[in-house]
Structures are given as structure tokens and as C-alpha cells.
Amino acid sequence: MKLVIDEDRCKGCNLCVLVCPYAIFQEGSELNSRGVVVPVLDRPERCTNCRLQHLYGRVLCGLCHMICPDQAISWIEEKPFEPHRVEVEF
């Protein structure tokens, strides 16, 4: 699961910034092509829903996408995690 903000719908009200208990949403600083400052996501993998929704089979917090007046926030399924080698340099 992954949190996404639909930039075509977001009007930059920052209500998500106000309600997120994990401070995942941060006020943005750059105007997008529609002239809206869309919030940015800070380490969205910390979101409870992203981590645990499948385990519990229901929405756990969801305040951001409930309060988003512009229906711009949703979770999308990610591709299954593929293990890959990480080269560690000493």
C-alpha cells in the first residue's frame, strides 16, 4: 500500500497536514502546474494503513483521506516487494 495525493484534485488546503498523527504530510513549498502548493509526503511508509491495512483487513486511521475535502488522497496497491541485492561499501 502506498499513500498518494492526486495533484489534479488537491487545492492545497493542508487539512491533511493538520490531522495526520504521524506528521507524514508536510506543507509543500513549490507551486505545481495548476498553481497549487500540494503537500509533500515525509516517509509515507510510516502510515499505519500502509503497513497494517492488509493485516487487519480494514481502514485503521484514514483521517487524511476522510477529511480531504477534495477527494485527493488515496492508497494505492504497490507492486509486491521484490528482494534485491544491496552492495554495501566499506
Binding site: K11, L15, M66, P69, D70, Q71
Partner: peptide, 18 residues
């Protein structure tokens, strides 16, 4: 029809969600 006509920060969109 989205995005709707409500101003940024308007609560009406939230009420539709609920």
C-alpha cells in the same frame, strides 16, 4: 466532475466524504 467547485479548505467536501 471532480475537482468540485468548493474553495480550498472548505469543509463541504469532507461532509460529502463522511
Amino acid at each position: 466532475r471532480l475537482p468540485h467547485i468548493y474553495c480550498a479548505g472548505c469543509g463541504n467536501g469532507t461532509v460529502i466524504n463522511c
